[in-house]
Nucleic acid binder design. Structure first.
Lengths: 203, 203
DNA sequence: GTCTATAGCCGGATAGAC
DNA sequence: GTCTATCCGGCTATAGAC
């Protein structure tokens, strides 16, 4: 499997991107210096400029890489010919697993939602959200319900994301079990909640 | 009503905090300079140091101010003696309204969830989340259901928050109605979803 | 309480040797 | 492809006049 982008992927370049992803996810664009990344990689800051023309190009490349390394998981979320409710369960399970597996990916996405300009939002939509979002909206339509399919789709995504987003808060709320099976627990919960809501078709 | 904190609140100090909140919500801690804030206020950067010892103190004061100016709305979310399902509807409606009204508040909270250390997370819990979270968890318990009350409570919060968080994406998804009544729409949707899920008590 | 001036540091980015 | 050295601008924070 060769490089999926126009630029060739040398080992050093990939190493730089890997550390850049970690740094940008942790501290945001403005909170990371080229010296930070260079130090992580073990090269000088000047050497970075051999691989990327400037900081912004490094950032964009890191974003694309972080998105690309999850494309397999994103595609996997969609492959299924099951009936709607079972497809929902599978989708939620896989989405929760993906979000739990790659914390940096989640943080980068959430930072982009806060920071990104229109162009970068467009990149985010095309490379990350478009396909799975279309799939979950289509699924929401198939679930016979008078709930708005867009709102229902976003609700599913929002519930799973917030479960991770709120993890730091959980340590400070007494009586809160720190379950070891987080992704499965939230997946089961969301599936159960939506399943019950759409199963109730009187009104 | 006097200052609720130890420090007296001069008009200039309040003005500084107001602009600081806007800046920090928009660009994050590292993305804002003291000169930026000073320029907004119309004073020199040096003058800021008469009101706050350093940048971090300004940031913390801005956070506290942003939280404090929403305490009225947060308390309002809890005042109700209605039966559970109606209390849920009211809570969701008020929460959605608060999040929609103060976009800066939401962004600051979401940035803190990404950036904050343990001490600042504790502040966030005590000044923002503790009370309404306890209330919504208690409410989730009252709704007779075998869904986990903590997960159910977080789901409600997550759905409302993500509706706003994902707003920038919505422009890039074709066929998506940009409803003018956003807070009401999401509140109605979440209420309907949860109401149906908990009303279904067979199993 | 605000100013101008500036110290001192750190950041992005470049030059040029190897 | 990586280095050292460096430029230069912006940053936090302080000094001292008004």
């Amino acid at each position: 499997m060769k490089a999926r982008s126009a630029t060739p992927e040398s080992a050093t370049r990939l190493q730089i991107l890997d550390h850049a992803i970690t740094r940008f996810a942790q501290s945001g664009y403005a909170g990371v210096s080229m010296r930070d990344v260079a130090g992580d990689v073990g090269i000088s800051a000047a050497a970075l400029y051999h691989h990327f023309p400037d900081k912004q190009a490094l950032y964009l490349a890191a974003m694309e890489q972080a998105f690309a390394r999850n494309q397999e998981g994103i595609v996997a979320m969609l492959e299924s010919q099951l009936p709607p409710l079972e497809r929902l369960a599978l989708f939620v399970h896989r989405f929760a697993a993906l979000v739990a597996r790659d914390e940096e990916f989640r943080k980068l996405v959430q930072r982009e939602l806060l920071d990104a300009d229109a162009a970068r939002i467009a990149l985010l939509v095309e490379q990350v959200f478009r396909k799975p979002h279309d799939a979950i909206v289509a699924l929401a339509r198939e679930l016979v319900t008078d709930l708005d399919p867009y709102l229902l789709a976003d609700s599913v995504i929002g519930m799973v994301l917030f479960d991770h987003q709120s993890a730091p808060l959980r340590r400070h709320v007494r009586g809160r079990a720190l379950a070891a099976d987080r992704p499965e627990a939230i997946a089961r919960h969301v599936t159960a909640l939506v399943t019950r809501a759409v199963a109730r078709q009187d009104r």
